[in-house]
Simulated scan of single mutants.
Amino acid sequence: MYRSRERTLYMAAPEFTILLLAAGITLFAGVVKGAVGFAMPMILISGLASIMPAQEALVALILPTLLTNVVQALRQGARAACVSVRDYWRMIATLVVFVLLTAQAVPMIPQALLLGALGLPIVAFALSQLLGHQFRFHAARRGLAEVLTGMVGGIYGGLSGVWGPPTIALLVSLRAEKRESVRVQGVVYTIGSVALLVGHASSGVITSGRLSLSGLLVAPALAGLWLGFAIQDRLDAQRFRRWTLVVLAITGLNLIRRALT
């Protein structure tokens, strides 16, 4: 009953209002990505799924994340990006396979279960970071660590477009240098976004209307990204990151609330 009323309210809301709210969320997500280098998909899926059905939110984030990831991946040039593909091919290949497989299950997952599956890892990641805990893999056997990272990232990536936490965990475990870490994330997320687009093109989740909304959100995403780049050296990155995590935790909890009610 509650979900039906919520859906009715969403459908009754003026289209321009939904678009304006979605653009604002996307702009903020772009600023965060430009300033601290992560969390854009988590902000988008948690924020957009709070104002529209989860499947529509999932499609809406695909094009903004894809294009901003391309910018991030190529900031040091195409040759450096190709080196990252070569160095992390096991993780990338595994992630692509599991994104394509998991995406096919999205239309069969009940809305409440999907909301819970989105909210729980977001809250877990945000709270663990706020408490000072860093997810890590034991990377003594790098090949196995990459495959496990790709599996975990691919499963959640196919469901939500979020593959950042396990990727970051692997890079931290390998003690990747900052510029390399940012570049590798951009490369992995770009290829993952392409796989997500292909996977949901065959799953039936993507429709012309949903993809049109995703296209409209590209401009605020890129504007936010460049704004984040511009203010990166002028703000207290730690404080900004902390408040971003607080926002993530709150929006993740709201997704869990919607799943339970």
Score class of each variant (00 low, 15 high):
65 T>D: 07
73 A>S: 07
1 M>I: 13
85 V>Q: 15
105 A>D: 10
167 T>E: 09
88 Y>L: 06
63 L>G: 00
46 S>Y: 10
124 A>I: 10
173 S>E: 10
41 P>D: 00
66 L>S: 00
97 V>R: 10
14 P>L: 09
232 Q>W: 03
28 F>G: 00
229 F>K: 12
232 Q>E: 11
71 V>I: 09
200 H>D: 06
75 R>Y: 12
198 V>H: 11
250 I>F: 14
152 V>E: 00
189 Y>R: 06
201 A>E: 09
218 V>R: 00
195 A>M: 05
248 L>V: 06
98 F>W: 13
187 V>A: 15
176 A>F: 06
133 H>Y: 15
77 G>Y: 04
213 L>A: 02
222 L>S: 08
178 K>D: 11
124 A>H: 14
241 R>T: 06
203 S>E: 05
22 A>Y: 00
88 Y>P: 00
224 G>L: 02
36 V>F: 03
39 A>R: 05
201 A>F: 11
14 P>A: 09
204 G>K: 05
85 V>R: 13
160 S>F: 03
53 P>H: 05
176 A>N: 03
209 G>A: 00
153 G>F: 07
195 A>C: 04
138 H>G: 09
194 V>H: 05
67 L>W: 13
55 Q>V: 03
186 G>K: 09
80 A>R: 13
15 E>G: 14
178 K>W: 10
219 A>V: 15
180 E>A: 10
2 Y>L: 13
190 T>C: 10
97 V>H: 14
195 A>W: 09
79 R>T: 07
107 P>E: 07
152 V>G: 04
82 C>V: 11
244 T>W: 01
192 G>L: 12
38 F>N: 01
156 Y>W: 15
247 V>P: 07
130 L>G: 10
11 M>I: 11
126 A>L: 15
158 G>T: 06
40 M>R: 12
76 Q>Y: 15
162 V>M: 12
101 L>K: 05
30 G>F: 04
134 Q>P: 03
156 Y>H: 12
76 Q>E: 08
224 G>C: 08
109 I>A: 02
141 R>D: 02
143 G>E: 11
39 A>M: 02
17 T>A: 15
113 L>F: 09
114 L>E: 06
257 R>D: 05
147 V>L: 07
159 L>R: 14
158 G>R: 12
120 L>C: 11
83 V>G: 08
